[in-house]
Structure formats: structure tokens, C-alpha cells
Design a protein around this nucleic acid. Structure first.
Lengths: 112, 112
DNA sequence: TAACTACATGCGTATATACTTATATACTTG
DNA sequence: CAAGTATATAAGTATATACGCATGTAGTTA
């Protein structure tokens, strides 16, 4: 059984969890993740898809890889990345739904 | 039906989602959230519980309130905060479980 | 081997933000 | 009203990090 965050956690574990949230807290990284939901892509494809510079995309991919959110697969000259952590889509959808609900509720405060 | 992050999202929505992750990406804020899982607490109690300064705790509580993760209830001289977004515990536990699994897998790479 | 392509990385700069100190505000009580 | 308490905020500093530019490295092809 997995240890639950809600029932007290060591400071060290808390820092790890915060680190993971922080990794997901950058728009460019989230953009990369979003594109990777469609399936495996190489760096050039991600550069085109996101409109970022090659250097910046590469760096963020490194960060995501270090966080074990995505994995690297080298094929000749290209490097393909894909999402390796199955909780990432759940996580994103959970947040997305929560945000939508918040905004809907706020919007309804201005009328029916 | 809530819009899913996994099926393409507007840039604006993506920024909002990133912002929420970023809010959860600070250790002190996560520490406050963790203590609030036990129930409603006022600022002084949170200062004691976390060991932070009053000013810093107050600022982070403001950030969490702005993100609609917690709500403020003023009672006389004290201000009580509590978690208002029900997805927060789910979110934290999801990440926590994922981290644990990662580390367990890594640990097992060093032998049985 | 030379030239080329895809990706990674070192370094500098700009910017965001966490934290501290000091002070302000809001409420209570004498 | 004065003094005290709980919380918020303003201003300054320190630090982290995202980004751009330049360059390095790995692999391919001529």
C-alpha cells in the first residue's frame, strides 16, 4: 500500500513531491507533455510543435527525463521521447477539471 | 463533462494549469497544505506547526487562497484557513504514490 | 575523412519569487 | 481612547531558473 501524503510525510518526501509539482509548473514543460500525449516524438518534432528553440526544448526534456516523467530512446541521430509515468495524464486531467470547475463557478457568480 | 488536458488544450488553459502546479511546487506551501489536511487551522497555529516566520506563512497562505486551494475564515482576531479544493488530497496522494513507486523501482535495481 | 544533421550543454543575462525586516491594519480589551 | 494581539503587507535582498547564443558531441553520409 502506498504511503499517503495526507497522513503526514517526512520532510524529505515532501521536498520530492514539491519538486515534482515544480517540474510540472513550467508552461513549456507542460506544453511538451501535452504534445507527447499523442505519442512518442523526437526533439525536432517537439521544437516544431511547441515553437520553442532547440536548446530550450532540449533542456526542458532533460528536466522531464530527470524527473522520470518521460523516457529517452535514441534511434540513430534522433532522440525520441515519450511519457513514461502513467500518473501524469491523471494528474493533468485532475488539475484541468478542477480549474474548469473553479472558473465555471466563478462565472456563474455573475448571473444565470 | 470536464475538458481533458490530454486532448489538446488552449494555451490560456495550459498556463492556468501550469500556474496551479507551480503553486503546489513550493515546499512551504505544501507543508501548509499537509498540516491543513488535519483540519482547519489559524495562522499562529500554522506558524508553530511549520516553523516558518509569520510573514512568510501569511504570504504563502495568501498565494494558496488566491489559487482557491484554501479558504479564509475570519473569527475575531484570528484567521482560520482550510482546504477548499477536494482534488488537492487526490493530487498529492497521486504524486506521492508515483514518487514512492519510482524510488522503490530504483532501489530494487540495486538488488533483491 | 570531411561535411552535415540532430541533439545536448556551457555560459551569461534577465526575471521571477522566496524570505527577512519593518511596519501597517484589524480587532479586542482595559 | 490606549495598549495589546493576530494577521497582512511593503520594501529590499538573495537565489533560482528560464531563455538565448554559441559551441560541443554523437551519429550519418558523401
Amino acid at each position: 500500500m502506498a504511503k499517503k501524503f495526507t497522513s503526514s510525510l517526512s520532510e524529505e518526501a515532501l521536498l520530492l513531491v514539491a519538486g515534482r509539482f515544480a517540474v510540472l509548473g513550467e508552461p513549456m514543460r507542460l506544453r511538451l507533455i501535452q504534445h507527447l500525449f499523442a505519442g512518442e516524438m523526437n526533439v525536432s518534432q517537439l521544437v516544431d510543435a511547441t515553437g520553442g528553440t532547440q536548446a530550450n526544448v532540449s533542456r526542458h526534456l532533460h528536466t522531464l527525463t530527470a524527473a522520470q516523467i518521460i523516457t529517452r530512446r535514441k534511434e540513430g541521430l534522433q532522440v525520441y521521447y515519450r511519457i513514461s509515468d502513467p500518473t501524469i495524464p491523471q494528474l493533468c486531467n485532475l488539475v484541468c477539471g478542477s480549474m474548469e470547475q473553479q472558473l465555471t463557478r466563478q462565472a456563474s457568480a455573475f448571473g444565470p
